Computed example of a mutant assay.
Amino acid sequence: MEKQDQLLMKKQNKNLVLDIIKNKSPISRMEISKITGMSPTSITRIVHELHEQGFVRETELVTSGVGRKATLLDVYDDVLYTIGVEIDRLIVKVGIVNYIGEIISFESMTRDVTENYSDTLEKLNNCIKELMTEKDIRTEKILGIAVGLPGFIDYKNGIVKVSDQLGWKNANLANDLKKHTGFEVIVDNELKMKIVAENFMGMAKDSLNAVLVGIGSGIGSALILNGEIYRGESNNAGEIGHTVIDPTGNVCSCGKIGCLATYISEAAILADSRKVKDVQSIDDVFDSYRNGESWAINILDRTSTYIALAISNILCLYNPEVIILSGNTIKKFPEIKEAIEKKCDLYIWEPLKEKVKIVYSMFTDRGVVLGAAIQAQNTLLDLE
């Protein structure tokens, strides 16, 4: 047991040193020693091992100041790559991401609503191979693939239990995509992937407690609590779309009455709009609002009210530092931001207002892809 404990500690120390170099480079060995409390001898040994494995290099820069100059350390950005994938109802996105989190190649493809599961996997496999060829990336450099998609996901086994948007049920996506590509695959809900990107370099960077709310074809959220993704017992933590807000309200696709999604989702907005006017898309509703049509103003005013109520409930339950709003509704209809903020001021419990920041995602179309690739690296990288 003692030997096992020592091996585990050595592995943890090695990971710690690599993380410090990656996040604080260029940095000297002495600075790493001060940060970690490890001896300079231990740091030198670990750095040597990381150099031998191809992760760490000495830069041409040296520290300035009085005394002996120390060579600074950096990481190789091309030591490994991960592939991030987003699959949505009408679009599939693929990106190759290097070790320091830069998307070096990206492709977006349309997806027909009638496209079946096998066709989507074949399309994905072909796209991945094309991007690798285009950037001349060898197979052994790819650590793995991570996929983000809407639905109820068995994260541990990589199974899509149910995705209403894609029409998939009990799809063994991780195993099936691995058969196509030969790479290790992890699968998760798209918002959980996106909050990883927000925590890595977005609006939740360095936050220990944050919530991402996605508003579009449905409404859902993802949570980081104490620096980790909070999943709940079955990876469904954050599924606020099926919280009941009106037991005498609208019928939801899940079979219940009065779910939040039946008031906020694009489908719900369209259904109510079509009672008044023959609109073809959500864009038509937004245009009607901009044209000053009272029915559209009333429907979208109600939408902003329910969004604010959802934010208020999330704050009372989790008390995060930051709530990030994202999704198609926010992107296509930025006018709703002001209405949400005014209603948040009205509905949020006073003691919670002082600390929380309500912000908007800085990612437009690549957040899920980046977050998925970062999650693949976090999950699959195992330093010996």
Rank of each mutant, 00 (worst) to 15 (best):
P150C: 05
K14Y: 05
E49L: 09
M9T: 13
S234Y: 13
I27L: 07
K69C: 09
D206G: 04
V160P: 01
V276K: 15
A271W: 03
N199R: 07
E58Q: 14
T181H: 13
V368N: 01
K192I: 08
K353Q: 15
V147K: 06
G84D: 05
T133D: 14
V213K: 01
C127F: 06
I323F: 05
S265E: 05
S25I: 01
Q375M: 12
A373R: 03
V113H: 11
I257P: 02
F333P: 01
N291V: 00
Q4E: 14
V97Q: 03
L16S: 08
G258L: 07
T305C: 07
G202D: 10
L61G: 03
T114D: 14
G258W: 03
C316S: 14
K135L: 06
V187G: 03
P247Q: 04
D287A: 12
I153D: 10
G371L: 02
K343L: 12
E115W: 00
E384W: 00
V276Q: 15
G220Q: 09
S281M: 11
N378G: 02
W349Q: 10
N175P: 00
S118Q: 14
I245H: 08
P150H: 02
D164V: 15
T36F: 04
S221T: 12
S288E: 11
N189H: 05
L325G: 11
M193K: 06
T181K: 09
H48C: 10
V359L: 06
K343W: 00
K337F: 07
L317H: 03
D246T: 02
V85H: 02
H242S: 06
K129I: 13
K141R: 11
E184T: 10
V79M: 03
N313K: 11
M203Q: 13
V85L: 05
S105C: 11
M193G: 04
D272G: 06
R57M: 13
A373L: 03
G327M: 03
Y117T: 09
L309E: 05
L370G: 00
G202F: 09
I145N: 04
G216K: 04
E266T: 15
G67M: 08
K10M: 12
T329L: 15
D301T: 15
K93D: 00
M132V: 01
E115T: 11
V369N: 00
L223V: 12
I145H: 00
Y230D: 01
G216L: 07
Y318D: 01
L72A: 02
N235S: 15
A197T: 11
I153N: 09
K332A: 05
I324R: 00
E52M: 14
I87E: 01
K10I: 07
D77T: 03
I269M: 15
V62A: 12
K331T: 10
I43S: 00
Q53T: 06
Q375T: 01
L208D: 08
